[in-house]
């Protein structure tokens, strides 16, 4: 049996809102370590990999592995019914055909209970090896979101160039071009404002902005985004959770 209690419903709300436009049907695999999701979008360009570690929960028990096949659009509708600050408990039997969500308002005795029917989802699981990346950058997630949104007004593609002392984001379109250059900086008072670059090789990679527009929906999950890039392979965009992560793997575009 699964019983996982979130101190605040807002975390699961944010997670679901962050991935529901990338993937619709996915298996939430629950184990003693927490909850994991791996799902690929319909075009097979973007992969979502989620780990909500058991330490995120104020109470967590899962005696044996349980798979919850969830339609995220329906899940999002139910999860919006709860308040952000409510306790949220997920409950499922060992071989469930539904999952129960219990919201408890901390300021009153109100308890709301919803159940979502589960589905058999035949998901292919992709094996992702740990890779050595050419470059790893860490920067404020909100800045990355703004840069991508700004440049998406010009082009469908985002070019990322990384050298030892700069990160350059570029977009070239029919109406004009744009670029934003960032330099590494350490902010001691506000570490979340820092920008770091680790470089093994200089990077020049291009990605579809429509996918990045979905990735940056994870911005509210973490102050910083970690981007790991190698030339001509999928890049990893990661928002760290208190225990766990939301990762997106995005296949690059190649210049003809």
């Amino acid at each position: 049996m699964l019983e996982g209690k979130f101190e605040e419903a807002s975390l699961l709300k944010k997670v679901v809102e962050s991935i529901k436009d990338s993937v619709q049907l996915c298996n939430f695999v629950c184990s003693e370590h927490g909850i994991t999701v791996q799902a690929v979008d319909d075009s097979r360009v973007l992969l979502v990999s989620l780990l909500i570690g058991n330490e995120v929960f104020s109470d967590y028990r899962c005696d044996r592995n349980i798979t919850l096949g969830v339609d995220l659009k329906s899940f999002a509708k139910i999860i919006r019914c709860g308040g952000n600050d409510d306790y949220l408990t997920l409950i499922a039997e060992d071989s469930p055909d539904s999952v129960t969500l219990v919201f408890e308002d901390k300021n009153s005795d109100r308890i709301s209970e919803y159940s979502l029917k589960l589905m058999e989802i035949d998901n292919e699981f992709l094996k992702i090896d740990d890779m050595d990346y050419d470059s790893v950058i860490k920067m404020p997630s909100i800045d990355f979101q703004k840069i991508c949104r700004d440049l998406s007004t010009l082009s469908e593609s985002l070019q990322i160039l990384i050298t030892k002392d700069s990160i350059k984001f570029m977009a070239e379109g029919e109406t004009g071009n744009g670029s934003v250059i960032l330099k590494p900086r350490t902010d001691i008072d506000k570490p979340e404002q820092s920008i770091t670059v680790k470089l093994n090789n200089a990077v020049n990679s291009t990605f579809g902005l429509k996918y990045i527009a979905d990735i940056v929906k994870g911005t509210s999950l973490s102050n910083q985004i970690v981007i790991k890039i190698s030339n001509r392979t999928p890049a990893l965009f990661e928002y760290k959770l208190q225990s766990g992560y939301l990762r997106f793997y995005l296949a690059p575009k190649f210049e003809d």
Binding site: V40, S43, R44, V45, L46, L47, E124, F125, L126, K127, I128, S157, T206, G208, T233, P234, Y249, A251, P252, K253, F254, E255, D256
Partner: peptide, 14 residues
Amino acid sequence: TSTQTTLSSFFKPF
């Protein structure tokens, strides 16, 4: 112009 690749070329089924 640029061509979008897919993850299938990089990651194999488990």
